[in-house]
Structure formats: structure tokens, C-alpha cells
């Protein structure tokens, strides 16, 4: 065993990067679910975002443009889901699963010319003297911009849902769409916007994998992150800060267990491999003991005639 081989500073830095795709996708899904929409297409929107972002970043040479394109790509794909569930009133579970399958296929098609290409790198944000602080500098102040976008997104989502009128309306639609409709709110329009926001966030998360974390394009490269994000939203009781906690916990323990394996720690590998899932679930389940429930209209179809 050689625990000294693990550098805690690098570990924390790696944790923030590893958690960002899950964090982005889960925050988007949280907003959609708070509006009463269960979109199981997160994986599909992520992978489409991954290839849109990758392709545009390679073509334009600008990773930032790539991320914008990824958000747009995810949002456009989610419009398909909105069309099916909000206009055609299709079943949300089936539509979401179909969206994932469709996204995986579409991304494979779009990505055919992009295998084996190296994307342009996104530089780290410059914090000037802050980055010079020992320990804090390399862990907190030496990341790419998207890591901070993810954190701001969580804070923003929390603030909007909690303190603003828009957030209140969104939650009202998610809790009781008939009442919201009776009050004159446009349920379908609000839900469509929430779905698009979810799609854009998932797209960003996907592009983070293809442009920064790996970085390359490979078919099916999100490999289930979307499903983890979905599960995280539920275990986090639809609360933004808990999503952040869950994502960092999951990302952190994943990194830690890889490092522990490399250092030859005498814990059986099977336990290490399952530890991110178990610890994240246990912590979030303990936290959710405060009886926070799912949005009451989650997954229910709305039509003005009901």
C-alpha cells in the first residue's frame, strides 16, 4: 500500500471535473421535474450535446462556441420530447426512453467523421493571485469555465425556484397543473421551456465529457451518466444543493476509489467499485428523511380540457 502516492489536491481538482457532467445534467432534469415533467431522455440529450459540441468546437476551433452549440443541440432534441408529451400528450416514460435511443443513434450518425480527432482545448479561468494560494488555488481556482458554470447554475436554480415569481409559477405547475391552469398560467408553455432548459443543461454536460473530460469523440461515450443524473435528482429530493452534494460525492468517491486501487489499498476492489453508488445513495437517503416529496404532478399528462 502506498497512500502517499495519492495527492489530495489533485484528487479534489479531479473530483470537481468528474462531477460536472452529472451536475449539469441533473440540475437541468431537476428543473424539468419540478415543472412536473419526467424526461428519461437525459442520456440521449447528453450524447447529442456531446457530438454537437465536439463537431462545432472542431469546425470553429472555439470550445466556447462548441458548448453553446451543445446546449442548443440538447434543447432542440428536447423539443421533440416536448412535442410528443405536451402537444401529442404521449406517455412521458415511453417518450423519454425513445428520446434516449434516438439520441444515441443520431449522435452516432452525426459523429461518423469525427472519430480520432483532437478537439481544441479550453483554457482554465484565470483568477490571478487567487490561483497562487497554496492548496485552495490548485483545488478551487484552476478549473475550466464550465466547472464554475455548473456551480453558478446550481446557485441560480436554487435562487430562482425559491425566491422568484417565475420559480413559484414553475413549482405550481409541477405540483398541481389544473390549479395553475385555472389561475391562468400557460402550463404547456412553461413545461416546454423547462424541458428545453433541461435539454440545454444535458447538452452542456455531454459536451463537457467530449470536450474536456476525455477529450475525444467516441460513439456512446456518455456510457450511462444520464441515468445516474436522473437517479440523483430523485435521491436529492428535487433540491438543487443536494444535487450538488450528490454529484460531488459521486464524482469524488469515483476518483478516490480509482486512486485507492492504483495505490494498492487492501480493500477488495468490488467494494471500491460499488462505493460511489452506495455512499451517495445512503447519504442522500439520510438527508431526505425530512419528508420532501416528489412534485405532485410529476409524470402526469396535462390537457386543458381535464
Amino acid at each position: 500500500m502506498d497512500l502517499g502516492a495519492i495527492n489530495p489536491i489533485l484528487l479534489i481538482a479531479a473530483l470537481m471535473s468528474a462531477a460536472t457532467p452529472i451536475l449539469l445534467a441533473a440540475t437541468g432534469e431537476l428543473v424539468a421535474e419540478r415543472a412536473g415533467v419526467l424526461n428519461l431522455g437525459v442520456e440521449g440529450m447528453m450524447i447529442v450535446g456531446a457530438i454537437c459540441g465536439f463537431a462545432i468546437a472542431v469546425e470553429t476551433g472555439s470550445p466556447l462556441t462548441g458548448f453553446v452549440a451543445a446546449a442548443a443541440g440538447g434543447a432542440v432534441l428536447s423539443l421533440l420530447f416536448a412535442l410528443l408529451t405536451q402537444v401529442a400528450l404521449a406517455n412521458q416514460v415511453a417518450s423519454g426512453l425513445a428520446l434516449t435511443l434516438f439520441g444515441l443513434g443520431l449522435s452516432a450518425l452525426l459523429g461518423q467523421g469525427y472519430v480520432g480527432i483532437k478537439p481544441p482545448r479550453m483554457g482554465d479561468v484565470s483568477f490571478g493571485p487567487l490561483a497562487e494560494i497554496p492548496v485552495l488555488g490548485p483545488t478551487l481556482f484552476s478549473h475550466d469555465p464550465i466547472v464554475y458554470v455548473g456551480l453558478l447554475l446550481v446557485a441560480g436554480t436554487w435562487a430562482v425556484l425559491r425566491f422568484t415569481r417565475a420559480g413559484l409559477i414553475l413549482r405550481a405547475v409541477g405540483e398541481n397543473h389544473d390549479a395553475a391552469h385555472a389561475l391562468g398560467y400557460k402550463v404547456v408553455r412553461i413545461r416546454t421551456l423547462a424541458i428545453m432548459f433541461g435539454g440545454a443543461c444535458a447538452g452542456l454536460g455531454g459536451a463537457y465529457i467530449s470536450l474536456i473530460r476525455v477529450p475525444q469523440w467516441t460513439e456512446g461515450m456518455t456510457a450511462g451518466v444520464g441515468w445516474i443524473a436522473l437517479a440523483l435528482v430523485v435521491f436529492a429530493s428535487w433540491k438543487p444543493w443536494r444535487v450538488l452534494l450528490g454529484a460531488y460525492l459521486f464524482g469524488g468517491i469515483t476518483q478516490l476509489q480509482l486512486n485507492l486501487q492504483g495505490a494498492g489499498v487492501a480493500i477488495p476492489v468490488e467494494y471500491l467499485a460499488m462505493s460511489p453508488y452506495i455512499i451517495t445513495i445512503v447519504v442522500l437517503v439520510i438527508l431526505s428523511a425530512d419528508k420532501s416529496a416528489a412534485p405532485a404532478s410529476l409524470g402526469r399528462t396535462f390537457h386543458a380540457s381535464n
Partner: peptide, 9 residues
């Protein structure tokens, strides 16, 4: 096959 995990490893 899990590119992100392979890269992390």
C-alpha cells in the same frame, strides 16, 4: 467501454 471512466483511471 466507458470513455470517461477509462480517462479518469
Amino acid at each position: 467501454f466507458d470513455p470517461a471512466k477509462e480517462a479518469d483511471a
